[in-house]
């Protein structure tokens, strides 16, 4: 039982990070039909921005704030204007391929322009260890989990409770009627991109102490976040947290109790089941077919 709890908690902390990136996935998809294959690189880039700023002498909080501002400009505004807007009306295929190209360019740009090495990154939580009922927990795990939970819940209540958030959701559900209602659609879509960029920065802040800042850190993170997003439901943002935690905990339990070589198979199996039998995701509502 102690073992189980140990694995469970550790998986929760990892999973909550997947959830942050997964949330961005679903937000972009709903607002603009973008499946962002560069989502992992969107976390990698802020990580390096922070590494660079800290190396230049900025304290962590300042580095983080500067990075968020920068990310909203580059990964939010410029990405939307430069890549998504021109391709939006051409359907899914060109956007998918453009983001694939973008992910190749970003990771290899960082590799060639900065470093191929992994860089350590001091987290915002001290490296202290607790022991509760035989389960060892680090302060960093607790902090990561709490911070990620807070962010996901805050994003969701922003979407559900505020006027702007509701307008954004209206745009995601039906662009035309949103326009009729007098909502500034392009601005709402931009807000979504901005939130995605900010969430990516937060994810970078939380994952980099463990993932290490490396040009290819986005590959595995992007894949896991993608699985989490689909399991939680690709066309709603409620399930992202659940999806992330399922993937994180699932791989730990599978590695311990099934087979370490097939540890990814559990999330994969669930992923397939969700797609085939409940494509709206575990927490999603059924969507009418658009013709």
């Amino acid at each position: 039982m102690t073992d189980f709890l140990q694995l469970f908690f550790s998986g929760m902390a990892t999973g909550s990070i997947y959830a942050l990136a997964a949330l961005g996935f679903t937000l972009l998809w709903q607002a603009s039909g973008t499946i962002n294959f560069a989502q992992g690189e969107f976390v990698m880039l802020p990580a390096f921005a922070m590494v660079g700023l800290i190396a230049a002498g900025a304290p962590l909080p300042l580095a983080f704030v500067l990075t968020v501002v920068l990310a909203i400009g580059v990964l939010g505004w410029a990405f939307k204007r430069g890549v998504v807007d021109p391709l939006f009306r051409h359907g899914m295929m060109p956007i998918v391929v453009a983001t694939i190209g973008l992910s190749i360019a970003l990771s290899n740009g960082v590799r060639a322009g900065y470093s191929a090495e992994a860089h350590p990154f001091a987290g915002m939580f001290p490296d202290r260890i607790f022991n509760i009922a035989g389960v060892t927990i680090t302060l960093a795990d607790c902090g990561t989990l709490a911070f990620a939970l807070l962010l996901v819940l805050a994003t969701q209540s922003f979407l559900a409770r505020t006027v702007t958030g509701r307008a954004m959701q209206a745009v995601a559900q039906n662009t035309e009627s949103a326009t009729v209602l007098g909502i500034n659609v392009p601005r709402m879509i931009f807000y979504t991109f901005a939130i995605n960029a900010a969430l990516a920065c937060a994810a970078a802040l939380l994952v980099t102490p463990v993932y290490l800042a490396k040009f290819d850190m986005g590959v595995s993170l992007g894949t896991k976040a993608f699985f989490a997003a689909v399991i939680g439901g690709f066309n709603n943002s409620r399930g992202a947290l659940l999806g992330g935690v399922i993937v994180g905990v699932g791989e730990n339990l599978a590695a311990a109790y099934v087979s370490p070589q097939y540890k990814d198979a559990v999330a994969l199996a669930l992923f397939m089941v969700v797609i085939l039998f409940k494509p709206q995701g575990l927490l999603g509502r059924k969507e009418e077919r658009k013709v």
Partner: peptide, 16 residues
């Protein structure tokens, strides 16, 4: 060292 960066960028521009 930049060749894959150039490649990725070329793909993005080509799509646009």
């Amino acid at each position: 060292a930049w060749y894959l960066f150039v490649f990725g960028t070329a793909v993005v521009l080509l799509m646009i």
